[in-house]
Write a protein that binds this DNA or RNA. Sequence first.
DNA 1: AACACGGGGTA
DNA 2: TACCCAGTGTT
Length: 348
Amino acid sequence: MRFSSNLILWYKQHKRDLPWRNTRDPYRIWISEIILQQTRVNQGLSYYCKLVEKYPDVHALANADEDELLRVWQGLGYYSRARNMHHTAKVVAYKMDGIFPDSYHELIKLKGIGSYTAAAISSICFNEHQTVVDGNVFRVLSRLFGVDTPINTAQGKKQFEKLAHELNDGGESGLFNQALMEFGALHCTPKQANCASCIFAAQCYASRHGKVDVLPVKEKKQKVKERYLNFFFVHDAYGNTLIQKRVMKDIWQGLYQFVLNETKEETGVEDMMPDLLGLYNGSKNIKRVDRCTHKLTHQKLYIQFIEVEVEKLGANDVSGYEIVSMSDLGNLAFPKPLERYLKDFKVR
DNA sequence: AACACGGGGTA
DNA sequence: TACCCAGTGTT
């Protein structure tokens, strides 16, 4: 039996029942694919449900407020996905009469849609003969055929694309693509692959040669940069706080933060007081200092939260920051560690 | 080609 | 810890 037929049979037996698998509406498939970029199904599932309920069609999403959209996206990470999605929704709604392009080559022109997502949407929604190559595909094919070309090189990517496309020969590209990814996600997993019960074990190079744990090959990772972020959570007796939208090209673009002083190294609160003096010219009271670390893929953040109570926040005291009532913070998106701080703050 | 961009799950 | 995840955009 052909590999593609065998794979699709496996898929029909083992696939998970997921909400985006009950539709071929390009809007919904698009939302699901953006969410699932570098994100596991279990992590993205609730976000998908929230998004399609709040924004049932591309017009609703196009008309959304960006802060509101980022708040829905809060906690999922890679926030450029949300900003690009919003941009593309406006393009589709206002320049394409709300109709998504129906081909790979048109889809890939849209912001946030790269080769993977264009292949996924065009194959799943329009049955175009395109083949997805994601982390699952790299893993399954490298093991099955013993391909040890590093997957994070241009050569490797081309080689796997060619191989995947040759295998996708059954005229059901949407099914084939989802089947291959599902097989990687559920069966041919990164750790402890289920070789004992694998339908392909007899022909699998890695299984026969004991190389399951060394494939796929990936070239060394980038190193992690360390940063020291000192946030002043300033509030007054009237429940007002000081916040700022992050606009720089940096992590957490578009999200909100407290008064920030970033330093080159671990810095005591006393040494940062001069900066704070310039920010608020009335009397102030440092109530509490909390510390935490936060790991990103490429950065390790050493975070201090300095709670500062002042008498009354007024427009004359601050520049570059907004005065916002504590009760309105729930409508804005904050980075994970700041959201956690706010949650703890409310409890105590 | 190399890097930047989050957060959570897994061993 | 270290690695990985239904990747894309920028430099």
